[in-house]
Design a protein around this nucleic acid. Structure first.
Length: 331
DNA sequence: CGAGATGATTAGAT
DNA sequence: ATCTAATCATCTCG
């Protein structure tokens, strides 16, 4: 009953079922069966019942094989017994010898049965990985869900860590599970941080949208919208982290514990995030400052990311970054 | 078909 | 327990 060797990593495929006299590939059998039922379906319950059908199929194969081996064992034993009996006419054969013979045979067959067991185990594992590994049936979220998630993300950019409640609400709105929401935010944070340039357009879009929605729109707000895509964002490979928030440094980091429980703070922060955007878009014009970095990595400090927070001091004071890279945006 | 996008899983850190 | 970072497996688009 020991789990034998669980294939620790997928994609390895080294299985190599016992060659030779052993029970040949139950596992391969099952894998083939699983592969045969590919495609189309994708109905959750249907798939699950499919999985169970395959499982019972494996079980049945296992039992019939087991029975077969047992029978073969018995037959072989009697055969050997007969031989011995015949030989006992020409030479004396002690009962001990017979017993030894029988036990040898049984040992052999039981080892074969162990192999059978192991193969079955592998088969189940393959089946499992094929049907139960969620990665294998990944579906993209629908457009609306991603919109909702993105909206939340970009309107909380300075602290994109939705609370449990927020997650539940998002999950409900998007018709996905809470852990899917968590996954999404985890992936988003990482990927955003990793390549902010790639997400600038998106960030601008959602920021503008939420601005229009939330800020009650003092009419005529539509313009200012993206003077063509700012291709300057550069960052080919080395992320030099042009952290120059400059304009809006002031509001930057009030993240951390300050509004842990206070929803008010969060709301305010959200508004600030949005407004900062609007400012960044329109404000660029008034000065000579080119608008080429409409959305700066505000919430992200140079060394790491959002999460470390709790750096007690040093926040709220625009003391430039550690490296003071300060890429000058003038031309 | 290949590259990039994307959701899920995992190891390790806190 | 939750997050990050890396990675996997699949989807999507050209």
């Amino acid at each position: 009953m020991n789990p034998a060797s669980f294939p620790p990593k997928h994609g390895s495929v080294p299985i190599t079922l016992s060659g030779g006299a052993g029970p040949e590939g139950i596992a391969q059998h099952a894998a083939a069966a699983a592969a045969a039922s590919g495609g189309a379906g994708a109905d959750n319950s249907a798939e699950h019942s499919d999985y169970r059908a395959k499982l019972s199929q494996i079980r049945q194969i296992y039992h019939t094989e087991l029975e077969k081996y047992e029978q073969a064992c018995n037959e072989f034993t009697t055969h050997v017994m007969n031989l011995l009996r015949e030989q006992s006419r020409t030479r004396p054969i002690s009962p001990k010898e017979i017993e030894r013979m029988v036990s040898i045979i049984h040992r052999k067959f039981s080892s074969i049965q162990m192999q059978l067991k192991q193969s079955t185990c592998e088969a189940v594992m393959i089946l499992r990985s094929r049907f139960l590994d969620a990665r294998r049936k990944r579906r993209n979220f629908n457009k609306q869900a991603t919109e909702i998630l993105n909206e939340y993300f970009y309107s909380h950019l300075s602290n994109p860590y939705p609370s449990e409640e927020a997650k539940e609400e998002l999950a409900k709105k998007c018709s996905i599970t809470v852990s899917q929401v968590s996954n999404w935010f985890g992936n988003k944070r990482i990927r955003y941080k990793k390549n902010i340039g790639k997400f600038q357009e998106e960030a601008n879009m959602y920021a503008a949208r939420t601005a229009v929605n939330a800020a009650s729109v003092s009419a005529h707000g539509s313009q200012a919208n993206s003077p063509s895509t700012p291709n300057s964002a550069g960052s080919a490979g080395s992320f030099n982290m042009s952290n120059s928030g400059d304009l809006f440094m002031s509001v930057q980091s009030m993240n951390g514990d300050s509004y842990q429980g206070a929803q008010v703070g969060a709301n305010v922060q959200s508004q600030v995030d949005t407004l900062r955007h609007v400012i960044s878009q329109t404000g660029g014009y008034s000065d000579g400052l080119t608008a080429n970095q409409m959305y700066s990595p505000q919430g992200i400090n140079a060394n790491g990311g959002w999460q470390d927070a709790t750096t007690p001091s040093s926040v709220t004071s625009p003391t430039e970054g550690p490296g003071s890279v300060h890429s000058d945006t003038s031309n």
